[in-house]
Design a protein around this nucleic acid. Structure first.
Lengths: 117, 117
DNA sequence: TTGACGTATTCCCATATCAGAATATAATGA
DNA sequence: TCATTATATTCTGATATGGGAATACGTCAA
């Protein structure tokens, strides 16, 4: 098998920086496609394609407005990412863990020194 | 160009479920490769390959222990993901608040129905 | 040294990606 | 209806993935 599709879940969809930028832009409110293209300095077809991926994982919704299509953010599908990564936030923010890492490295170094002698 | 490499950053590395599982397993402490393979019911070579990706983005560190190689979690590279997704957490919790409002209204209506009976 | 164990690498292959260019579709206004 | 504007789709090509299988590498014990 190959790599999971970008449309497989929010994790994969959001791994692409352009798509994160699009979501960031939509956080300010709904926008038509060309607007996004101008903002991100990206060609219109690429924007449409990225939006398609985001739509597939339900991260955006669309609304027709004449010839324009107004896309808007739908953030809830990001929640699993938040929930997953949140658990690790403690690990890097807690001082004790950092101390553990430092101590581990010191032990390693000491081992190396022992070997040398 | 093609899709960004899995080793491009933590976003891409972590988009693969198996690699998240590996990190989850390592959250409990350092482990040798075969241990992980058994835990995740995955063939050893695949585990080694996933670990290589995780190492490339500095999400794991290794320590030699005889014939074994003990891998351990290094969570700080996950921080950019947390920081990015955290901004959206408010948006969906606000939505929940709105839902609360709706539920409240429903309850009110029900009260009204009770009165009718 | 040899054999066994633990881990890493390589090869194969089906599958997707992303950008760019070209083109198609849809809606509006004259 | 026709031209214009806004968006979507299709095609191409270079690239990489992830699993499976086979194999190579490294270390320890006898």
């Amino acid at each position: 098998m190959a790599r999971a599709a970008t449309t497989a879940d929010a994790f994969n969809a959001v791994a692409e920086p352009r798509r994160r930028q699009i979501l960031d832009a939509l956080a300010g409110g709904e926008r038509p496609v060309n607007d996004l293209a101008r903002l991100l300095e990206l060609a219109q077809p690429q924007v449409s394609k990225h939006l398609r991926v985001l739509k597939a994982v339900d991260l955006v919704a669309v609304r027709d407005a004449g010839r324009q299509r107004l896309y808007r953010l739908n953030s809830p599908p990001l929640q699993p990412i938040y929930e997953w990564v949140k658990q690790y936030e403690q690990l890097w923010s807690e001082r004790f863990d950092q101390m553990d890492v430092v101590l581990e490295e010191l032990k390693e170094k000491e081992k190396g020194n022992d070997k040398d002698q």
